[in-house]
Structures are given as structure tokens and as C-alpha cells.
Design a protein around this nucleic acid. Structure first.
Lengths: 192, 192
DNA sequence: CCCTCCCTACCAACTAGTAGGGAGAACGTC
DNA sequence: GACGTTCTCCCTACTAGTTGGTAGGGAGGG
């Protein structure tokens, strides 16, 4: 299961970086062709339209996210540590500025102007992430590792929203440390 | 101090609605001219460039926000109730879909691709809002109306981030009620 | 022989922005 | 109070550059 780094993958990876920077309408085919080393029109061979490109990009992102969480569950047993690892992953991404924003959080803000096919994928990511968080929280309560006020589902939504808001604040202030400053108390509160 | 509804105001109001929908790069002068009833080129008479238009738009938005919070402080004495009123304001905006997103939260996500002059205003809004929230929280603690874990400043950032994240989730799910579902526990926790 | 991949060469529509002019209100001045 | 001048606001007409997307062809491997 190696990755021969095809042009299509290069295009997806480049587009992802561009979306993370400024969203759906902030990049063009020209931006991609320059970086990937392919002609503008050739992108259409792999992705008929921009909507299709981004739809598949988000689908791939969701798949990777799901795979990442599955592996996280395999490597880390404790629910609280799982949450810490999840937050820590993003803390790292923001600190080294590699992917300092969630693709779907970025696109979610633009949903009113997004192609419906893309919006569907974005919504699916939110639901999937929320469901995973809820399951972790639920197990954490069952194992007496963390205590909640309210349902696991409600707390999952709060958790997710706070993480997204922390990304936004880190970007707004231009201060990577802001993400940790907001998410650390979130984790501490659950651990109590 | 009446507002004669000049064309410049119409342009600003229209642009604000468009930015709330999809951000800086999601709208063009043509979108504005169609709604406001003015020719494309005439917009340049009032605002030399798009960057200038949005910069002044955000400056106006900040001014209105500051005025709103000042009036809120005059009408509501209790710190906790002030926070409730602030959240309630946004809950209303999201429910009636009039301005279902904070202009600056929207633009903050796009900061890497924003004109610097606009980014400066957006950052200033974040700092201003955070400072107001911190002052309210501090007074709330002093008056024994609410209890915090950690500093007022840290809690202000958490509060703001959660509210922004709640806007995002409400939009992502297409469910206005999601905003309240996330922010209500936030207020309850502080009231404890 | 076809299929995959990428190319050149287009395209119409749209992007922000410029040049220059006209109508009319505002203003001083004789 | 009549007269030019200036200023505000908006217009038509235009531009250069970019947008996503199409048509058709060529190279090369299965």
C-alpha cells in the first residue's frame, strides 16, 4: 500500500493547502498548476470541475481523519488521553504551521456559497467527528475517567465547537499558543 | 443624528451581508451593484478598492459592536445577564437568519489571504471583544455572580472561541438551534 | 488499437479597476 | 439675484488580467 505520488494526489494535496489558507474561493486552478507542475487544463483530466475536485478532496480528508482516529484508538486506550492526543495533533499542526486549520471547519464557514456536493461532505465530517467525540466521552464516563455535565452528545458538540473556535482565535491573533490556551482548560474540566 | 441611507451606506450594508454569507473572496462588485442599484464602476467613487471597502466595513462593524456593548452595559447591570444578552443577541441573529455569522469571525478564517489593512481591523475586533468579555467576567467574580477556573482573560478567550465555534457548527449542520445547544451550557457553567 | 495522461490553443464570462464626462447641487461674488 | 465655478455623485465605455472550462491532438504503455 505505497503511495507513488501521482499527479492527482499532488493536485489534491496542493488544493488542500490552499483551502486551509483561505477557503474555497481563495484559490484557482492557476495556483495549483504552478505548484504541481502541470498545465491548467490538465487538472480537468483528473477532476472535471472545481466542485468535483474539492468534493473528492474533502472525501479523502474525511477518510484520513477516520483512519487517524481509528489508529489513535488502537494506540491509546484511555479516553481522556485520546482527547488529549486529538487536541495535541492539532496543536502540533498549528505550531509548525503545516496545516494550521481543519479543512472542514474552513469550508463550513462558507457553506452558503459552496456547491451542494461539497457542503454534504463537510456536514458529514462534522457529524462523524461529533459522533467519535461522543463515543469517547461516553466511554470516559463509563470508565470513571471523566465527568460530564449533560449528555455525551451535547459535550461532544461543545468540545468540537471549542476546538474550531480555538483554531480561529489562533489564526486571528497570529498566535499558535492561543489554541492550547483555549483547549487546555477544556480538557482539564473534563478530567475533573 | 438621523441616517439618510446614502448609497455608500447601502454598499456597506450589502457587502456586509455578502461577507457573512461566504467571506472576502466570495463576492464581487457586480454582486453589490445589482442589489444596491448602482453601476459597478460607481462603487469605486465611494471606495477606491475592495480592500478599502472591506476595511471600512469592518471598522464600522467594530464601532457598532462597541456601541452595542456599551448600551448593553447601560441596560443590563448584572454581569451574568450581560453575557446572556450577548449570546442571546447572536442566537436571535442566527435564528432569523438576518446576520447568522460574525463578520470578523468569518474574515478571521481567511486572514492568510486577506489584505493586511483588513486583517488589522479583524485582529482589533478580537482583542476588543475579548477585553470586554474579560472585564465582564472579572466584575462577575467580584460581585460573586459567577465563578471561574483560571483567569478572567483566559476565560474570555474560551468564551469567545466557543461562541465562534457554535456559529460554525450551527452553519455546518444547518441547524440554528445548535448555537444555543453549545452556548447554554457555557453560560450555566459560569453561573455555578 | 485503445487508454491514460498531459499538452497547446482556445473560450466566454467575470474580476477589480481606470478614464472621462454629465447632471445638479453648493458656493462665492459681483 | 444672476453668473460662473467647483464639488459631489453617478454614468458609459473600456481595459488588462483571471476565472473555470472545452476541443482536440500527441506520446507512450498494456
Amino acid at each position: 500500500m505505497n503511495t507513488p505520488s501521482t499527479k492527482a494526489d499532488d493536485i489534491l494535496r496542493c488544493a488542500r493547502t490552499l483551502i486551509v489558507r483561505g477557503g474555497y474561493n481563495s484559490f484557482s486552478y492557476a495556483d495549483i498548476s504552478g505548484v504541481v507542475g502541470i498545465r491548467n487544463a490538465s487538472i480537468h483530466h483528473h477532476f472535471p470541475s472545481k466542485a468535483d475536485l474539492v468534493r473528492r478532496l474533502v472525501a479523502q480528508y474525511r477518510q484520513e481523519a477516520e483512519a487517524g482516529l481509528t489508529e489513535l484508538e488502537r494506540n491509546v486506550a484511555d479516553p481522556l488521553e485520546q482527547l488529549r492526543a486529538y487536541v495535541g495533533y492539532w496543536e502540533g499542526c498549528i505550531a509548525d504551521a503545516s496545516h494550521p486549520f481543519c479543512v472542514c471547519a474552513m469550508l463550513a464557514g462558507e457553506i452558503p456559497v459552496l456547491p451542494e456536493a461539497v457542503a454534504v461532505e463537510v456536514r458529514a465530517h462534522f457529524r462523524g467527528l461529533s459522533a467519535w467525540l461522543a463515543s469517547v466521552l461516553e466511554r470516559g464516563v463509563a470508565e470513571a475517567r471523566l465527568t460530564l455535565t449533560g449528555s455525551a452528545g451535547d459535550n461532544a458538540e461543545i468540545f468540537m465547537a471549542t476546538v474550531h473556535g480555538a483554531m480561529l482565535s489562533a489564526r486571528a491573533y497570529g498566535d499558535p499558543g492561543m489554541f492550547g490556551a483555549i483547549t487546555r482548560p477544556l480538557l482539564q474540566r473534563l478530567a475533573a
